[in-house]
């Protein structure tokens, strides 16, 4: 009995470790290649550890195109997106979770169902709309929508969390003469910091990783985001795999760092969304 249990456990660990290696290998290969001489990359059989570490790949890659500017452009967009999403999704979720008003539930269901809608359908009319307003080739189309609730998923997530806070709390504050906005800003906001962090992290990654949005809306090189910059780099230096790998590493790094900083909130956020059908 215990013998077979141990065998099962060994198989389990072998499978998990094997799977982890497959997951991590592309990262390893990326970083390995980013530190190599071009000639070393092409050597057969492949060399595992670069010798010597060629740090200058990074400086070469980062100065070949104005990556500093791309970083700044991306940061601007992401900060505006995150702040808009965090502020408006929580205010809207507060209204849907804790205030009674006619049509509340049906409106919520309609908005939630938009989660199922393919973004491609609204992309073209949105583009035409921004074009008519003269707002294309700017960060406006990429950031303004975040200030309108930050998407159905985030409102949903926040609303789920609001459901876990006792109703007596609002009631007591109300009796003390607090208005609704005061209850939201003084009472609810401090209580909902963990899901707000989760929502903020999701918004950050959405903005950081977005490719199609910037591709459609930004035309001038100097307005490009990191994702577009990397795509441009790939087109220009497509034979120089070592430099390309260095640039790619730099683009990935912030996303990975943010993930590690907020790991706990990520998983909690996903659990919080409940997904009970």
């Amino acid at each position: 009995m215990t013998g077979s249990k141990r065998a099962v456990n060994i198989v389990l660990y072998v499978v998990l470790i094997g799977g982890s290696c497959i997951c991590l290998f592309p990262f390893f290969w990326l970083i390995r290649s980013s530190f190599m001489e071009l000639t070393q990359i092409f050597e057969m059989p492949p060399i595992w550890v670069p010798r010597p570490f060629k740090w200058s790949n990074y400086s070469d890659a980062l100065t070949a195109l104005p990556f500093g500017r791309y970083f700044w452009n991306t940061l601007k967009i992401v900060v505006l997106e995150v702040s808009g999403t965090v502020l408006t999704s929580s205010l809207c979720a507060y209204a849907f979770a804790r205030l009674n008003w006619p049509g509340r539930n049906i409106i919520f269901m309609v908005i939630l169902s938009s989660m199922m809608m393919p973004g491609a359908v609204t992309l073209i009319p949105q583009f035409i709309g921004w074009k008519e307003l003269g707002a294309t080739n700017s960060i406006i189309p990429l950031t303004v929508p975040a200030w309108f609730g930050g998407g159905a998923f985030n409102v949903f997530l926040m609303r789920q969390f609001y459901g876990t806070i006792p109703k007596e709390l609002d009631e007591a504050a109300f009796v003390d003469g607090a208005g609704y906005f005061t209850i939201y800003s003084r009472l609810m906001l401090p209580l909902t910091v963990p899901p707000l962090i989760a929502v903020g992290l999701f918004a950050f990654l959405n903005g950081w990783n977005d490719f199609m949005g910037p591709l459609i809306y930004l035309n001038d090189d100097h307005k490009f985001t990191l994702a577009l910059g990397l795509q441009l780099f790939k087109g220009t230096y497509n034979a120089q795999w070592n430099l390309m790998m260095a640039a790619t590493t730099v683009v990935i790094l912030p996303a990975i760092a943010v993930f590690f900083l907020g790991q706990k909130y990520f998983v909690e956020g996903i659990v919080m969304s409940g997904l009970k059908g």
Binding site: S20, C23, N209
Partner: peptide, 18 residues
Amino acid sequence: FFLPTMVPVVASSVIWLW
């Protein structure tokens, strides 16, 4: 297992192209 989902699509495309 979750880590690869953090990678921007441009970056993962370059890695897999390689």
